[in-house]
Design a protein around this nucleic acid. Structure first.
Lengths: 335, 335
DNA sequence: CTGTTAGCGCGTTCAT
DNA sequence: ATGAACGCGCTAACAG
C-alpha cells in the first residue's frame, strides 16, 4: 500500500535504523550527508509525509492555530482571515476557524475545546467584553492568545487594534468642515471598546467644534435590516440631519436606500460616511465617504504576533499594536 | 499541575487501571455504572479532556474536516461555510479552512498536505476543471471527499450542485416575458461547469423564444472592477441592451453603477438580473432581480454527505445532489 | 466487570 | 555516525 509510508518503512528499505531515518529527516547534525541524501530521496520517491498525530503527540506541537470570530460573512473578518492565512502558510501552519455568531456561550465553548492541545495558539475577536473578563484573564495564562480588533481593553494581553477613536474624531471633523451641523450617528458595537471609542470620537469632535451633542440623532443598530431602514427613514423625517455617520458597515445599505426612498438625492443633499471594508468601496467612493480599516494587515499582524510568541523570540514589551485606518473621501467633491 | 490531567492520573487517583478508565470514558458496556460514575465525576472535577493527538494516533480519526474554497470574502462561500460548520459542530468535528484564491497550484498543494491523516475528509470547491481531472480522479480514492458547487462534472464522485442551467433558462425567459429583446450576458466562471451551464441556459432560452444569440452582447469578467465598469458602459453605448443578465455577483455593483452613471434610470429603463447571495438582496429587491443560490443549504448537504461517508452508512446510489436556486423578482414591478 | 499487554508513528535519550 | 530502547496518551485485544 502506498498509503502506509512511515519512517519504519523507509528504514527497512534502506537497511538502516528508524532513529537514523528520523534524525536524517530532521536534518540532525549527527547524520552523514550521504545518509541524509539517501533518506531524503527515498522519502521523496515514496511520497513520505510524517504522520501529524504521532508528531503532535511526541512534540506537543500541532502546527495548527485557531481563529475565533463572530462571523465570516463580513468584509472585515474575511479580509482579516486572508491576512492570517498568509502568515500561517508561511510558517507551515494550518488554520481552524470557528464562528461564534456573536454568542458568548458558543465563544467560550469553542475556546474551551481548544485547550487540550488541539492547537498551538489562538487568535480571537470577541463578541462582547461585558461579562467574561475573568474567563479571559485565566485563559491567556493557559494558551498563547492574541486578540484582534475586538479586544478586552483592560486585560494584560496581546492586542492588535485600530485607531477607532482617532479616525472617528477625524471623520466627524471632516463632516463638520464640509458644513454639516446635524450629524446623525448610527451606533453599533456598543458592547465593545471599539464601538465605544468610535462613539467617543464622534462626540468629542462635535464638542471640539462647539456643536452640542443631541442624543436624538443617535440610532442603535438592530439585527433586522428592515428595522434599520425604517429607523433611518424616521430619523430623517423627525430630525432632518444633514449627515449620517455610520459606525458599522451594516448600516451602509439601509442608509443609502433610505436616502433614495426619501429622494434626498445623495450625494448632493446628505452626506453619508461609514466604516466599511466593502471591496466595491472604490466604486462607491463617488457617492460615499468611508473609513476603511486595514483588515488584511490586522490579520497579518495578529498572526505574526502569535508566531513570535510561539517561537519565543523578540516579544516586544509593548503588547499593543494599533494600526491606522484610512478616511477615503468622495472622489467627486472631495467631501 | 492542573494541565497534566490524563487517564493515567485518573486511574491512579481512583485506584483502578488505565484501561478501565478509558472504557468508562467511552461508555463501554463492560463497565459498571458505579465505576463509570466515579470516573466521570472525577474527570469533570479535574476538568479532564482527552489528548487529541494521542486519540488520533490510536484511532486514525481526527474529528477534523477540511474545506477548500477559492475565497472566503464571497457571500456564497461564507454562507456555505456557515452551513458546513453547523453540521460539523453537530458531529463534534473541527473545521480547517484553506483559500486557494483561484490558484490551481495552491489548491493541489493544500490538498496534498491533508493526505497524511491530518483530516478525516475534505469538502472542496475547485478553481477550474480544465487541467487536473487526473489529479482528482486519483484523489477521491485516497480520502473521503465531496465536491460542492464547483465540481468536476465528469468525475465519479460525490457532488453537491445547484440547478444552474435550469435557473438560468428560467431567468432569461423571465426577462423575455418582461419584454426584453436585447439581453446582454455578463459571463463569469467560464472555466467551470457551473459557469458554462448558466451560459447555456441563457442561450437556449433565447433560442427557445426565437431570439437570435448575439455574441456582441456577451461580456467576460475581469479581475479589475474598474475594467468591468468601463466595459459595461461601453456595452451600453455600443449595443443598447435592454437588460443585463449577470452570471456572477461580482458584476452587480459595476452594472448598477454603470446604469446610474449613464442615467439609464434603473429600474425603469434597463433590467438587471444577477446571480447573487448578498445579504442585502432583500433590500435591493425593489430595484434588482436576483438568482439566489441556497448557499447555506449547499454547505449543509455537502457536510452531511461527507459524514455519511465517514460513518459508512446509507450512502445513496445517487452521488449527485442538485439543489434549487430561487429567482427573486423585483418587489415593485414584479419584473 | 476489571486488568494486563501491546502497539499507533515519531523523536529523544543513551549506548556503541 | 548509527542504532536500540523507551515513552508521549490513548485504545483494543485478550485474560481473568
Amino acid at each position: 500500500m502506498s498509503g502506509e509510508v512511515n519512517i519504519k518503512r523507509l528504514a527497512q528499505e534502506l537497511n538502516i535504523s528508524i532513529a537514523t531515518v528520523s534524525k536524517a529527516l530532521n536534518d540532525s547534525y549527527e547524520i552523514s550527508l550521504k545518509t541524509k541524501n539517501r533518506v531524503l530521496s527515498l522519502a521523496k520517491e515514496l511520497n513520505y509525509t510524517p504522520n501529524p498525530a504521532a508528531s503532535n503527540l511526541r512534540s506537543n506541537k500541532t502546527k495548527t492555530i485557531a481563529v475565533i470570530i463572530p462571523c465570516i460573512a463580513n468584509n472585515f473578518f474575511s479580509l482579516a482571515i486572508k491576512g492570517i492565512e498568509e502568515i500561517a502558510r508561511k510558517y507551515g501552519h494550518h488554520v481552524l476557524i470557528y464562528q461564534t455568531h456573536e454568542d458568548t456561550e458558543m465563544e467560550m465553548s469553542f475556546t474551551n475545546s481548544l485547550l487540550n492541545g488541539r492547537v498551538d495558539g489562538i487568535l480571537t475577536s470577541v463578541s462582547s467584553n461585558e461579562y467574561n473578563s475573568d474567563y479571559y484573564r485565566d485563559l491567556v495564562k493557559k494558551i498563547p492568545l492574541v486578540f484582534f480588533d475586538r479586544v478586552y481593553e483592560s486585560l494584560d494581553a496581546f492586542k492588535i487594534t485600530t485607531d477607532d477613536y482617532q479616525i472617528s474624531f477625524t471623520a466627524t471633523e471632516h463632516l463638520i468642515k464640509c458644513g454639516c451641523l446635524k450629524i446623525a450617528y448610527l451606533y453599533g458595537l456598543g458592547n465593545l471598546p471599539a464601538g465605544r471609542a468610535r462613539f467617543s470620537g464622534y462626540k468629542d469632535a462635535l464638542n471640539a467644534h462647539g456643536i452640542s451633542y443631541d442624543e436624538n440623532l443617535v440610532l442603535n443598530y438592530s439585527e433586522d435590516e428592515d428595522v434599520n431602514l425604517d429607523n433611518i427613514k424616521k430619523l430623517f423625517q423627525d430630525q432632518y440631519p444633514d449627515a449620517l455617520f455610520s459606525s458599522i458597515e451594516e448600516f451602509i445599505i439601509p442608509a443609502y436606500l433610505a436616502c433614495n426612498y426619501l429622494q434626498l438625492q445623495i450625494p448632493k443633499d446628505v452626506k453619508i460616511l461609514s466604516f466599511s471594508n466593502m471591496s466595491s468601496a472604490k466604486l462607491l467612493n463617488p457617492s460615499l465617504t468611508t473609513i476603511t480599516q486595514p483588515a488584511f494587515e490586522i490579520g497579518n499582524e495578529a498572526a505574526k504576533c502569535l508566531f513570535k510568541i510561539l517561537n519565543k523570540r523578540g516579544i516586544d514589551d509593548d503588547q499593543n499594536i494599533v494600526l491606522k485606518s484610512s478616511l477615503i473621501k468622495r472622489a467627486s467633491t472631495g467631501c
